[in-house]
Design a protein around this nucleic acid. Structure first.
Length: 228
DNA sequence: GCGACAG
DNA sequence: ATCTTGTCGC
């Protein structure tokens, strides 16, 4: 499910674009919300290349408390190419989430969903591979566009691809620019926004993603101190 | 042809 | 993604 070539990935993306899995429904009680992220060596700007060292981490919180965490080290399999992010980061994110003692109810991913040339961004694909409901969270859209919402906590505004709503700008913290929220696997725009708001606590970035990023960077610092 | 372009 | 500097807030 993690192809090595652009052609193979594009074929999978075409299949995912027409998939219609049953909608995820939040159960009773506090949902376990996970986040996963991959980071790369300090000092290496640009799209990178296959073989780049990489660290990935996943964190799961419930009611603001960390209940699971996993970190893995490995290598990226390709450079970053817009529309083909899964080629570079998919396997690492899969490994980090799979290393968790138990999976979350829903997973936040640093990637788009239907805001993608083939309507199948990495947030969609990772959810399909793992069998987990996912929500994409990015700093900016890939192709979609929309006016920002007012500067008020929780305010949102549509992100459109042509005339089709594919996500939403979401104000997670006043006085900071909004995040782009993307429905991924088994989620829609409304539930995606709900989940992100439920995962935010005092910062712009949802807590599970912040924790995952910290863990990944800690692993990077340890390895870069040990080697070069 | 040129620029834009999740991470 | 990563880098940099300055600035604001707890």
């Amino acid at each position: 499910m993690w192809p090595a070539s652009p052609a193979a990935l594009i074929a999978i993306q075409h299949e995912l674009s027409t998939a219609s899995p049953p909608p995820w429904r939040r159960g009773s009680g506090q949902p376990e919300i996970g986040g996963c992220i991959v980071c790369f060596p300090r000092g290496q700007a640009g799209p990178g290349s296959g073989g780049d060292r990489a660290w990935a981490a996943a964190a799961v919180l419930r009611g603001g408390r960390l209940i699971a965490e996993a970190t893995v080290a490995g290598e990226a399999r390709a450079p970053y190419i817009p529309g083909l992010l899964a080629l570079r980061e998919g396997p690492m994110l899969d490994a980090a989430v799979s290393a968790l003692a138990s999976p979350p109810d829903v997973l936040l991913v640093d990637a788009t969903g239907r805001d993608h040339p083939r309507r199948a961004g990495l947030a969609v694909q990772l959810g399909a591979v793992l069998g987990l409901a996912t929500v994409g969270v990015t700093h900016r859209p890939l192709l979609a566009a929309g006016a920002w919402p007012e500067d008020r906590d929780g305010a949102s505004a549509p992100l459109l691809l042509g005339s089709e709503p594919v996500g939403a700008w979401l104000r997670t913290h006043r006085a900071t620019r909004p995040l782009a929220v993307h429905p991924g696997w088994r989620t829609n725009i409304d539930t995606a926004v709900e989940i992100v708001l439920a995962a935010v606590s005092g910062h712009r970035t949802p807590e599970p993603l912040r924790r995952a990023r910290t863990h990944a960077r800690t692993a990077r610092a340890r390895d870069e101190a040990a080697h070069g």
